[in-house]
Design a protein around this nucleic acid. Sequence first.
DNA 1: GAGTTTGAAACT
DNA 2: CAGTTTCAAACTC
Length: 805
Amino acid sequence: MDVVSPELNSLLPDEIMDTEAIEDMSHPQPDSAVVQTELSEDTPVPMETDTPVISESLSLCSGSSSTEHTQILTTSTDSACSISAGSQHPISIPGASSPQLALKTPTSTTTSATKPTDGLSGSAVSTSGLQKLTAPFTISPANHQIILNKVASSQATEAAKTAGTQVIKQEGQKLLVTAIGKSGQPIVLQLPHTGNKPGGSQTLGEAKPQTTQFKVVTIGGRSELKPVVASAGNQLTALQAQQLKTVQISKKTPTSSAAPIKFIITKTVNSKGLSTQTAVSPVIAGRVLTQNSQLIPPRTITLSEQHNTSIQSIPSKKIAISPLKTPSKVTVVSVASPTSNASQKSVTLPVNVALGQQILAVQQPTPVSPVKVATSQTTTQNMKQVQSVSVGGVGGSQYKTIIPIASQPNVQQIQVPGSRFHYVRLVTATTASSTGQPSVPSTSTIPTAKPMVVNTGAVRMSVPIVPAQTIKQVAPKPLTSAAVVTTTQTQQRLIMPATPLPQIQPNFTNLPPGTVLAPAPGGGNVGYAIVPAQYVTQQTPFVSLASNSSFQTSTGVQSQARMPLNGTSTTETAPRPRKPCNCTKSQCLKLYCDCFANGEFCNNCNCNNCFNNLEHETERLKAIKTCLDRNPEAFKPKIGKGKEGESDRRHSKGCNCKRSGCLKNYCECYEAKIMCSSICKCIGCKNFEESPERKTLMHLADAAEVRVQQQTAAKTKLSSQISDLLTRTTPVITSGAGRLPYTFVTKEVLEATCECLLERAKKAEQTHQPRAEAERLILEEFGHCLMSIINSAGKAKADCASINC
DNA sequence: GAGTTTGAAACT
DNA sequence: CAGTTTCAAACTC
């Protein structure tokens, strides 16, 4: 069930990691169920919960009962990893009954939870030979927190540090678990299954490994398949600004041991973001390992949180995942399940988790029910179920899709021209015979494609990162789309980072697309690849795969991807054709390079000394880190959501044009076809709503576009006519008895046709027709000639047939 | 296609 | 943070 390797966890940026363990329950409880959490034996773990969001939702709240082992644990170093109070954290797990498990912080409607006296207290305990949570903890519903160190004093903290223990401290309305453990020492929290205590929190009972378990918080540590594991790596302390908070949620279905459901939700929380950053972009990575049983209803897990700390002042508002808040959206899609068969690989997304502005869509093998993504919009919006995964770049918005990769299959990195991101194809090197040729009619071949086979051997997921030298880059031709190829194998490989760079802690949300997150070593067999949603939407029939015929495309993602997003059809989100770069000095490792800036590998570019490829993965990663250090938003789309009342889209930083009047493509605003906003620092800007120059340009551009469209339509029509002609004549020619001679279009016929065309041209010239009109007339005449030829051919065939009869 | 202009990115 | 330099794309001829 591991999702992110410790190494990668260390690389994860500060904004996203919020470790929350959520375990899907085999027997979902009704509303207002109390989630029973246990850190260890006799050690109750308070659960911050709240009222249920909707019916069929299981609320993990202190005032509710639950049979599930659920734990929300945040480990971070000096950072405030929090489950925002006042915000909902609904989690819905697709299932047959479609129950939803909702994690919410107490709202104003939850009176019981707001009573400080309702809090639980106890001692955090951890075993398994790992570090223990020795600090006492307390559930403080009033603060919407779980306080493990009830003595949340500096002395306690220092003592905990000295003891090398983990301290969960209270900080405002945040659930904070400070990982101060020894470096590399994982914190293991065992959450034995216990019964529910409806109506309030309760002391946790004995641990029951056989029951549902949670795997919580793996930071730097190697998470094993233990009930609850919380580990803190020393890498976290390397950058205080970047903290990790990881929650891994696993479920064991009592009814089906073979179908455990495990969720891993990771999010880094930037301590700075608590105060200043407005665009905390948590990343949720979830996966349903083996939820193959048809008896298990798909469930949707939806997590919502307020990602903007400034909103914390708003009490008990359901904030959430507002795609509108930022253009970035991360979709986590579980591509395949180890036990799923071919049919199961397709289509449905069993679990969709929307957290913050990201959507977690964990693909489920079972196509039983439609995927639901519960997204709670801003404060005025409650949970909103939408189709999952249908994400796509809109107007520069960047949507990332994290696809948990089924184990075993190799990963092929696919460069799709025109796309902002890299695509990762999962292939199974050992199942070539089973997978067969992709079901994609390859209208375009990829002779130059370099299929990247990441090591054909069985590679355990304990190998967090595939060495760069073991992979090759796929370079499909333009107009081709890559496909995520999934197999039923149990292992997988990943692309990036190809070289472990523990010292690098890139912002996970800002990781360039194409990054494949490695699962935690030894922890599981699933990985996550950040794949642009565009990729999903670009699943076109003419997807051309590499020469390796063993690859098999996953149609499931395709179908999902075609779903419109925000009312925008996939056709509207068609990626712009990426132009090849021409970098000469930057080695394509600086943001000067559009390829690099877009998170793409250079492909079919004209650059010199390019390092933006897998062969220079190390340098590339360093460059990414450098860029992120310089600007954490470096890889985020520049065109984001504007403030209310302003245009929907605006440049995140604004332009600084001085001489172009912001009416040339030098201006990033104009290039993005948006008007300059108040944040622009441009001089002599003419790119505003009422600008006559802008209107003129717009009109000209529109006229040009219309003309291009007309020409394209004419060409298309002509091509179609010619194609139709060929299809109608070819059978005649090659149909044996009814065969017409190839010489049907004789020299005389050609000459006559040319004469007709010339005559039409002369007439057009004599009548002083415009050139375009003349061309149209000539083409029209040509069409008539063709039709005459066709008709004659048909008559000849009929005559021939009559003679034969 | 070469040269110029431009503004973002990088650097100091 | 401001000024300067570098860089590659956009643009012009």
